[in-house]
Design a protein around this nucleic acid. Structure first.
Lengths: 186, 186
DNA sequence: GAGTATATGGTACGACTGTTTCAATAACGA
DNA sequence: TCGTTATTGAAACAGTCGTACCATATACTC
């Protein structure tokens, strides 16, 4: 009865739209240019996602999913002393390949500060990382429920990412992370 | 000959426009609502500032000026041990009164990542703080030209501000700063 | 009063926005 | 072939955007 639905189309569009947002940013996102870049039409974007807001939500969910996957793939490589693990994570997340993801990360945070109502799970998205990174630095934690150490580690990484993306001064930020790794090792 | 110019009008408008941007954010800024809130017209905004882009530049410069002034007023109060100074600065910058400024700070950074061409002095605005804060933590620096310590201190503060503004978890972020102050004191 | 420079109001232009409406096409089962 | 459901194109709607144009009003010198 009737033409069969094609859910794969929405998935394909979502994947390519996520690529687009990762390279072009979220702020000036507009349906018509997006549709053109995706070889489709604003009509179809709304047909598949209902509204721009829902499309953006789907794209952000997809981006988060990708980030979590990539991180999970990399974590096993981070072994050794505290310094080595910290340096490994920093080298990975500050690499140029992660730049689009980092950029979107900061963009969403900033937008969330102005329109908190659009991001009901803003806090969750931040603290999510602790569960994975907290395990990585368990041996320098003061206890099994220690949230302070992962909080501090993530703050240093985010703060240095902020600095690096703004100034591009890799040498200085790398050395600052080394200093922190040194402090943390004692 | 002719009606005398009134440069004070532009200053008054700039001051109120800065207030407006600090509370409403920069992303969705639009001339008509701004003009309405300032009891003026888009016509006059362009008359005084030439274009929206120049207006925004003037507002950001004014906001930076205010931030620097307030910081300079507060710094003398930050004395004592490294821990005390760090905690003092954190308490000051993370206070609710600074929230609009912090919000704008993150917003400009995020926008600068997507449109670097609009912010030729982006790096400068970041490193500016080092000159003042570097002096504050000179005794834990490894030398007079040590840029690593102020870089790390600022990274911790910015990273924890990021966390605090996103999650609102003051207790956890306060404790993380204490932990860092402790590490830095050794 | 005239002359002149600054300051405004009103309005409209062209380009964009997300979204809707209407019609047409495509792929299936019967 | 027909009914049915999914998909898609074209165009329009109602709105907002930054900005430009044109007239007018204001405040001053002479």
């Amino acid at each position: 009865m009737g033409r069969p639905a094609d859910p794969a189309r929405r998935e394909r569009t979502l994947a390519r739209a996520t690529d687009y947002v990762l390279t072009h940013g979220l702020a000036g996102l507009s349906l018509r240019p997006l549709a053109t870049a995706l070889d489709t039409s604003p009509r179809m974007l709304l047909y598949d996602f209902g509204s721009k807001q829902e499309l953006v939500a789907a794209v952000l969910a997809e981006a988060r999913r990708r980030g979590a996957t990539r991180l999970a793939e990399h974590l096993p490589a981070a072994t050794g002393s505290v310094q080595e693990r910290l340096r490994g994570i920093w080298a990975w997340i500050s690499a140029d390949e992660r730049a689009p993801f980092v950029r979107l990360f900061f963009e969403v945070h900033a937008d969330g500060l102005v329109h908190p109502e659009n991001y009901p799970d803003q806090g969750q998205a931040i603290t999510d990382w602790f569960d994975t990174l907290g395990a990585t630095f368990r041996d320098v934690s003061t206890g099994p429920d220690d949230t302070v150490t992962p909080t501090l580690v993530m703050a240093v990484i985010r703060g240095l990412l902020f600095d690096l993306t703004a100034t591009g001064d890799r040498h200085r930020t790398d050395r600052a992370l080394d200093r922190f790794a040194e402090l943390l090792g004692h």
